[in-house]
Nucleic acid binder design. Structure first.
Lengths: 103, 103
DNA sequence: TGTTCATTTGCAAATATTGCCAAATACGCA
DNA sequence: TGCGTATTTGGCAATATTTGCAAATGAACA
């Protein structure tokens, strides 16, 4: 059996941890439709912009998002659309009897 | 665009959060090969058995694992093998230039 | 019943996360 | 340069997570 190194386990955990917050998942949802500036993301989320900015930083730090400044604003983009396709598996887990939804 | 309800975002976040710890990912790895008793899992993890037990409870509480008592011991089983198949996407994220690894 | 082995739970300390406010930074433009 | 808009960062309090030790629970068996 393939034993993952502690480093790999840690790195994977960081990504999962980054996804482990409802606000950050909402951001991922929003960006699944295409890149958006911080102000637009902030508009759809009920939290201080500073809080939104930190959530974006968490997702960017693990590589899920990338950002690009264009003029006045910063645009964020989803780097890994496969995350939302993983939801099918998640709903399976959530429904309790979930194995059917998994590969 | 499909707007997820706060409840769904929260539920998904719980699952991701449960996966957001290296020890728990190690456990998932181990169980990908088939069910194991707590004592066997404990043997391969450098932590107090009480700690291992709590990690198992976290994973079970969100539906990723199920447990069954047989005689003296408790066996845990992975309910959602799709998690490990998601790693391909993760490694893509981790390698930084990852989009190719994603769907 | 009492003993032993396997697992879980109560507790407390250390550590990490979250979220707001206020201040700082970055950029475009007059 | 100075001003207004957009975004990030510092500081801090509240809350949550993690962990080991010790005690409790559950099951098998003498």
């Amino acid at each position: 059996m393939p034993v993952s190194t502690p480093q790999l386990l840690q790195a994977r955990a960081e990504v999962f941890k980054a996804l482990g917050h409802p606000t950050r998942l909402a951001i991922v949802d929003m960006l699944a439709g295409g890149e958006l500036c911080v102000c637009e993301i902030d508009r759809q989320i009920d939290a201080d912009m500073s809080t939104v900015s930190r959530h974006l930083a968490v997702l960017r730090n693990v590589g899920i998002l990338s950002s690009e400044r264009r003029g006045n604003q910063v645009f964020y983009r989803l780097e890994c659309p496969c995350i939302t396709s993983f939801y099918g598996c998640l709903e399976g887990v959530l429904s309790g009897t979930g194995r059917t939804a998994c590969l």
